[in-house]
Simulated scan of single mutants.
Amino acid sequence: MADFEQHRQRLFAVAYRLLGSAAEAEDAVQDTYLRWHAADQAEIREPAAWLTKVLTNLCLTRLTSARARRESYVGPWLPEPLLTSYTPLDTAELRESVSMAFLLLMERLTPAERAVFVLREAFEYSHREIADVLDLTEANCQQLYRRAKQRVAQDRPRFDASGEEKLRITKNFLVAARSGNMAALEGMLAEGVVAWADGGGKTRAARKPIRGRERATVYLNWLASNVEGLEIRIDEVNGEPAILAFVHGDLTTVINLQIVDGLITDFRAIVNPDKLAHIAAQVTQHT
């Protein structure tokens, strides 16, 4: 058990980036543990490599079935939020690879492309190591990596905001929204801003993206509503400042803002209670 526990945090980090779901990542880590427990550990020469291989292939299987489930998902699908203010993200690559924008870009890749790209970009695995994990040739891995990198580069914002700028704009956005200053709020939104709400059919949420500055401003007016027992604060989620809304102490909404050239281009609200369970437990743990 102790041998496995020293790898648990890294295994979860890999699984979360591959799956975009904290709950599924935890399940994949637990399934990996069960296989570790059942294996003849004396025969395993490199536990870290063995565990990574088992976990990654479990995640690939889950990704294939997840795609089918997401086709019938009610409304927009967004990754599960993850509280990272208490989790060390030591490199810029690790920080970016856990961001909402990155996880959404990963959804456009095939499972194999996603595995190669995450292991290479976020965890700096060599192509030889990745080939061993996926039972592919080095040449095949390099080809998958090039293809994935090209697809990600096409959609990655060129002038994403710095961490300090994101925090400043997030605070200003919250002040404008909570005070009902719609003129100030509208001035912070890009012309082609898109507001997304992931409710999964479990709670009230727009089932289609709200596009355009004027329509988004009207939609975001709900933030100014006086809900009894409402508490709103900013914390670090997925490596970036995010807005957390609580009603009578229960986490009901996590809001992520994508900011490019000083303007909000995407407003993402996760309100599906199933997707808030993990981060709610994290908040409780650190309160």
Rank of each mutant, 00 (worst) to 15 (best):
T84V: 02
L109N: 00
F117D: 04
A139R: 09
S85K: 10
F117R: 04
E124K: 15
L51S: 04
V54M: 10
M100V: 15
R70W: 02
E124H: 15
K149I: 09
E113Y: 07
R108F: 11
E129I: 03
L105E: 01
A131C: 15
I44N: 04
D90R: 12
L119D: 09
E80Y: 00
L94Y: 02
A38C: 04
V116A: 11
T61H: 10
E124T: 11
A49N: 00
E121C: 14
Y73P: 00
P88E: 08
P88G: 07
A48Q: 10
L60H: 06
L105A: 10
T137K: 01
G75D: 02
P47T: 05
T137R: 11
R128F: 12
V133P: 06
V116N: 13
V133W: 07
H127N: 08
L136V: 03
E80L: 03
R67P: 01
L58Y: 11
P111G: 04
R45P: 15
T87I: 14
P47K: 04
R62A: 10
T84N: 11
R35C: 05
K149S: 02
A66P: 07
A101N: 02
L94A: 10
R69C: 03
A38Y: 13
S72N: 04
V98H: 06
L82N: 02
T56H: 01
L94V: 08
S99G: 07
L78Q: 03
Y145D: 05
L103T: 07
R62V: 06
R70Y: 06
I44V: 14
T56Q: 04
E96C: 13
H127D: 14
A39F: 03
L51R: 09
D132I: 01
T56V: 14
M106R: 03
R62E: 13
V98P: 03
I44K: 08
A39V: 13
R128C: 12
A48K: 02
T84H: 12
S85M: 12
A49T: 03
L104M: 14
L83R: 06
L78F: 04
Q41I: 15
E46F: 09
T61Q: 15
T52I: 06
L55V: 07
Q143R: 15
N57D: 05
V74K: 09
E93F: 13
E71D: 14
Q41N: 08
N57A: 07
F117Y: 08
T137Y: 12
D40H: 06
L144H: 00
D132W: 13
V74M: 08
S72Q: 01
F117E: 10
N57E: 07
L109C: 10
T84D: 10
Y86M: 14
K53H: 13
A38Q: 06
S97K: 05
W77I: 04
K149M: 10
P76R: 06
L119H: 06
L63K: 11
Q150F: 15
D90E: 12
A39S: 15
L94D: 00
T87S: 14
P111S: 02
T56E: 04
A92Q: 15
F102G: 07
R69I: 00
Q143T: 15
S65I: 04
L58I: 12
E138C: 14
A148H: 11
T87F: 12
S99L: 08
Q143P: 12
Y145K: 01
R69Q: 01
A38V: 13
E121F: 11
Y145G: 05
T137G: 15
P79Q: 05
L103E: 01
D90S: 15
A92E: 11
D132H: 14
Q143D: 12
H127W: 12
A68F: 05
E71H: 10
E121T: 13
R146N: 11
